[in-house]
Nucleic acid binder design. Sequence first.
DNA 1: GCGGTGTGCAACTGTGGAGTTGCACATCTT
DNA 2: AAGATGTGCAACTCCACAGTTGCACACCGC
Lengths: 120, 120
Amino acid sequence: MPDGDIAEVGAVDDGAPVELFAALADDSRWQILVELSRSPASASALAGRLPITRQAIAKHLRVLTEAGLVDATKSGREVRYEPVGARLSQVARQLDAIARGWDRRLERIRALAEGGGDPS
Amino acid sequence: MPDGDIAEVGAVDDGAPVELFAALADDSRWQILVELSRSPASASALAGRLPITRQAIAKHLRVLTEAGLVDATKSGREVRYEPVGARLSQVARQLDAIARGWDRRLERIRALAEGGGDPS
DNA sequence: GCGGTGTGCAACTGTGGAGTTGCACATCTT
DNA sequence: AAGATGTGCAACTCCACAGTTGCACACCGC
């Protein structure tokens, strides 16, 4: 079998934004994102609508900002946060690409198993 | 202002599979997924290619299975795991939908701010 | 200037999860 | 039947992180 078409599959691997998934793997942060999507607000304003302290919210906002999921805008003594949809769409495209890569590989392996039976 | 076009925005919120993001927020689990995309294997086989113990891998595989990201197939005394691309694509679509929802809301808010200036 | 409001930083506690070791059970091989 | 290989369960350690309290500093209105 030709091995020229195998060299290109190595690029599937490292596209996993683990840090961003960690940012999304928290209920409080999703609540914050939902509130911000309703209307951009400051940390103190969010503290009035969520069952946790302002400092906890501030930490979450820091995580979300570093993940690129929210955008911080300083206005006087206030810091106004708003969600960034572009980042989420970008991750969505990456995930879909990875999923397609999986399916492609599995289909090839299945084809080899049925046809030759020697995938060494 | 008419409120008929506001009633439909409430559906944006609860589409956040936090449990699934938690499953994806781990380096070891991504390594496992990458190995499985190379070729489906058992927990013991994976233990030979990854720097962690078989039991740790077994735990990760349990998490991934419950998240629907891998499929387990028992064959004799072996359990063969393979990645499920469909689940990942599904999450990708959900994320994109949420992102579009954010952008839609923000644009509406900006329009209100410029035009009327009274979003009460 | 002075009080009120908003933000930031620094400990501290509690808990969940990653990884380990140890052992018991099931299955394949000879 | 006996050894080897694969899996599963249970307890333990360790650490990162969510959330808290407390205090110091920056900005707005009076």
